[in-house]
Design a protein around this nucleic acid. Structure first.
Length: 907
RNA sequence: GGGCGAUUAGCUCAGUUGGUUCAGAGCACCUCGUUUACACCGAGGGGGUCGGGAGUUCGAAUCUCUCAUCGCCCA
């Protein structure tokens, strides 16, 4: 059978993924083995695979596959997040297209539509992950809104309420006038936007005097209930006890003195609108001000405003400014950049509104979450992420979490109202029982109670994810086995939304759920390590996102370069934790991103190289024993050398894995496989054209190849599985995905160095040939000036033979003289070699080259001499370092001597 | 305003506790090479005073300070 010269990932990748699924290799149940568990950061159920997902999930897959190869019980739990706001918006939109208004539906009817949508379109992303090779335990696929997870949400809501941590309060909240729901602080994105600072004058009541305030939001004037100045501001002290008249509304409001007001800002006088600004609200609280809410929920002016009722706030701003200008109230208008908060989901400008909402007190939680990381129980990679985390969670910054959302797609808050009373309970029955007890009225029915219409924030379910995916709230068995999970791999952008909160939840509940003993033995944290991946950015360093259109299509990339190629590309650009600039170029003509990537191409080329190296091996004829002793010696030497290189690499990679330096491991394997194994080892053992190879060497090569495939498997699962099966006839179930990961063994650097020295000689021979326009493969004689070192080196069996073979030499001889007619000399290591040259030697050019080298060596030697003559260096530096310097100097001197002699020889 | 990170070859980035020629990788570039596993290839090469300045040290890409530029988080 002849194999194509091209590796074709398409059918191969699908074939093996199906095979792994059929064999249920990704399926995990608790057993005697050590568990290695990862929970996926659940992508939005509405989501499509993007570059961030690919990076994130490739990393998780690498870790989980490696654990599996190491014989651990690897369990990667997949799933999706119900994403209240995003999904509800999608469903509402779809219904609108069908002519159905959400407001015409009951909650129950809406939920039926929403679930239909979810079943039909949701979770496409999980299938996309399969294309990438993700080895999730698909039987465990979870959804944050499924029954058992929702049940857990209600339970912990009730629990936290009992503990007094959840409360319902009247606060200024972030209101999204498009999604028509409150948001948490984390869901508001502040960006600087160009706007204006309006200076507006208010008349002092009963006088002809005016006070000028500065505001960016003149439309809120109608909700003003005071004018505030700083008590230390001498400009305004005379206004004590006076009142100001609000333009248009013609209401009179007090002039108050509050230290919050910045004297330097604007005019030093501030209009106070307690209903529409968090700071103003606090001022209002301090001075018992009235709050006047002038907006409807959709951001239009309300009846209370009294003007422009029903018109949008931003249109009204313009109209009011015009009106104020006409009435002479505008003193001046300045250009001004201010921070505008927009809803993360709808991009609507968030309106601060005074509302009753449910909150979770964060003080204690924040401390728990801080301690977990401070104490080192939970480790962050990269470490500096701790700073951001710490900054957010410190007492001054952390604020209570608004957890209620005015939506339907989510877990409905388990609170029932009867008059002024609130009953929080897991079920209606319990709530009713509570109500009966409280009121003493045994005749109450559930119809007398009104359930809270709101749902909880999506993150209020996802913070339980590491516990709830193992059904930890129902039974401890799986939790005791898989929890704490080994590592969480996620982008740092959801550090506060999710990571910090999972830590809080872990410490809050898992202790009780695990039971005392298990909690003590295993710990209650949700994960040991958090590996924060960087954001994937485009050429201009913008975050890749669908809305910007700057992200290549993930599936297109896989289609083009194969899953392995894309995995390689993602990872090779992603050093631990740093943001990555992905190389997908932008078409200058269309301005749209091209689904191309040099890095992925490199990965694809790597697959092809592996494939072709195998084709060479596969095409060899095999004989029992080598015909010649020299061949046997070379093969023996090559095998020894590569075995040691391999062990050296494995050991190094173990260290890198510990700190999640995965791209380092991948590049290491790339070099080991391509350079050391293919370019050196295989070339050493490759027999002459159409000659057979001996069985032992062939077996050894296949053995190396096989181990390399296991090592590479976590990174490039498809090509390695394919090669695994090409390399040998395999019994059923003998698959690379479950092969045995090599354990690092001792290695001998001396063995590595010796052959490396020979490789240097070979390389110099080639260089000499290229420099002098000589043929690469013309058999030439090489001589070497006798030295102790080179004699010892060449005495090693196979060493001389390997130089002869790879240098295309006719002979390799020792010489006693340091000048040989008709040769070109070069220095390798500290030895001088003479390559036969059947050409006219350009003496001048040769001299120039030697002089250049000589100059370099002399400079190098001078540097070291200076160092060594410095007493403080010799006395203070560790002896090993000094010795190395001495050795370096001796080598340099030896080289200088050889070069000088060569120069002399040339005349 | 508070905090974090970055600045190394034309480009994208590695460089772990300061010490093996440590200044590196990939891509790009240049020269040569094709009946020999692979041109998605092979052999060889050029290219950076590690953002500027100062300091600590026997020794600094690495530590400290400072300036500059860029990016980000929080207010």
């Amino acid at each position: 059978m002849t194999l194509s010269t091209r590796y074709n990932p398409k059918e191969i990748e699908d074939k093996w993924y199906q095979h792994w699924m059929d064999k249920e290799y990704f399926y995990s149940t608790p057993d005697d083995r050590e568990a290695y568990s990862i929970v996926i950061p659940p992508p939005n159920v509405t989501g499509m695979l993007h570059m961030g997902h690919m990076l994130n999930n490739t990393i998780q897959d690498i870790l989980i596959r490696k654990a599996r190869l190491e014989g651990k019980n690897a369990c990667w739990v997949p799933g999706t997040d119900h994403a209240s706001i995003a999904t509800e918006a999608k469903v509402v939109k779809l219904l609108r297209e069908q002519g159905i208004k959400k407001s015409d539906l009951t909650r129950e009817e809406f939920m039926v539509h929403a679930w239909e949508w979810k079943e039909k379109y949701g979770g496409i992303i999980l299938d996309q992950l399969k294309k990438l090779g993700a080895s999730c335990d698909w039987k465990r696929t979870r959804f944050t809104l499924e029954d058992s997870l929702s049940k857990a949400v209600l339970e912990i809501f009730v629990d936290l309420h009992k503990k007094g941590k959840i409360y319902r309060g009247l606060r200024i909240v972030n209101w999204d006038p498009v999604a028509l729901t409150a948001l948490s602080n984390e869901e508001v994105i502040f960006t600087e936007e160009r706007s204006h600072l309006y200076h507006v004058r208010y008349q002092i009541e009963g006088t002809e005097e005016w006070v000028t305030i500065a505001t960016t939001r003149p439309e809120t004037i109608l909700g003003d209930t005071a004018v505030a100045v700083n008590p230390n501001d001498e400009r305004y002290t005379h206004l004590k006890g006076k009142r100001a008249i609000i333009p248009m509304a013609n209401r009179s409001v007090p002039i108050i003195f509050d230290r919050y007001v910045e004297v330097e800002f604007g005019t030093g006088a501030l209009k106070v609108t307690p209903a529409h600004d968090a700071n103003d609200y606090e001022i209002g609280q301090r001075h018992q001000l009235e709050t006047v809410d002038i907006f409807n929920e959709d951001g239009t002016m309300s009846e209370t405003a009294g003007f422009y009722i029903g018109e949008d706030r931003f249109k009204v701003r313009k109209k009011i400014v015009k009106e104020l200008e006409a009435s002479g109230h505008i003193v001046k208008i300045e250009d001004y950049n201010n921070k505008v908060g927009r809803s993360e989901r709808t991009n609507a400008v968030v309106e601060p509104r005074l509302m009753k909402q449910w909150f979770l007190g964060m003080k204690d939680f924040a401390k728990t979450a801080l301690d977990a990381v401070d104490s080192g129980e939970v480790k962050f990679y990269p470490e500096h992420m701790w700073n951001m985390y710490h900054n957010w969670l410190n007492e001054d910054n952390v604020r209570d979490w608004c957890i209620s959302r005015q939506l339907w797609w989510g877990q409905q808050i388990p609170a029932w109202y009867l008059g002024e009373d609130i009953f929080v309970a897991k079920s209606e029955e319990e709530a009713l029982a509570q109500a009966k007890e409280k009121t003493g009225n045994a005749n109450l029915t559930i119809a007398d109670l009104t359930r809270d219409e709101d749902v909880v924030d999506t993150w209020f379910s996802s913070w339980l994810w590491p516990i709830s995916v193992f059904d930890g709230f129902d039974s401890p068995e799986e939790l005791r086995y898989y929890y704490p999970t080994n590592v969480l791999v996620t982008g740092w952008d959801i550090m506060f939304f999710w990571v910090a909160r999972m830590i809080m939840a872990g410490y809050e509940w898992s202790g009780d759920l695990l039971g005392e003993e298990a909690a003590k033995n295993k710990g209650v944290k949700p994960f040991h390590d958090v590996f924060f991946t960087g954001m994937v950015r485009d050429e201009k360093r913008r975050k890749m996102s669908k809305s910007l259109g700057n992200s290549p299509e993930a599936l297109e990339l896989i289609e083009r370069y194969g899953g392995d190629g894309v995995r390689f590309g993602m990872l090779s650009s992603a050093a631990a934790g740093n943001d990555i600039v992905f190389d997908a170029p932008i078409d200058p003509k269309t301005k749209s991103v091209l689904n191309e990537s040099k890095l992925c191409e490199q990965g694809q080329n790597f697959c092809n190289k592996i494939w072709n190296a195998f084709r060479m091996l596969e095409g060899l004829e095999i004989m029992d024993a080598p015909k010649e002793e020299s061949t046997a010696a070379i093969n023996q030497l090559a095998g020894e050398w590569f075995e040691n290189k391999l062990q050296q690499t494995i050991a190094k990679h173990e260290e890198s894995f510990k700190t999640y330096r995965l791209s380092e491991v991948l590049m290491g394997l790339y070099n080991l496989i391509w350079n050391d194994f293919f370019s050196e080892y295989l070339e050493f053992i490759k027999p002459d054209y159409q000659q057979p190879i001996d069985k032992a060497t062939y077996e050894q090569a296949i053995g190396f190849f096989e181990r390399l495939m296991t090592l590479l498997h976590p990174f490039m699962p498809f090509v390695t599985e394919e090669m695994w099966h090409q390399l040998r006839d395999r019994a059923d179930g003998d698959d690379c995905v479950i092969s045995k990961y090599p354990v690092a063994k001792a290695f001998d650097t001396a063995v590595i160095e010796q052959l490396d020295a020979a490789i240097e000689v070979i390389s110099k021979i080639r260089f000499t040939r290229v420099q002098n326009g000589m043929k690469q493969k013309e058999a030439l004689k090489l001589s070497v000036l006798k030295s102790e070192g080179v004699e010892k080196l060449l005495a090693k069996p196979g060493m001389k033979e390997v130089i002869l073979k790879r240098g295309y030499l006719s002979a390799l001889e020792f010489s006693d003289t340091d000048e040989i007619e008709g040769t070109i000399a070069f220095v390798a290591g500290t030895d001088k070699f003479f390559l036969e040259a059947n050409i006219e030697i350009d003496v001048a050019a040769e001299k120039e080259k030697i002089e250049k080298d000589l100059k370099h060596q002399q400079g190098f030697a001078t540097g070291i001499e200076k160092k060594l003559s410095n007493e403080r260096f010799v006395n203070n530096a560790p002896p090993a370092v000094v010795d190395k310097e001495r050795k370096k100097l001796a080598d340099a001197h030896a080289k200088i001597k050889l070069l000088e002699e060569s120069l002399k020889g040339l005349g």
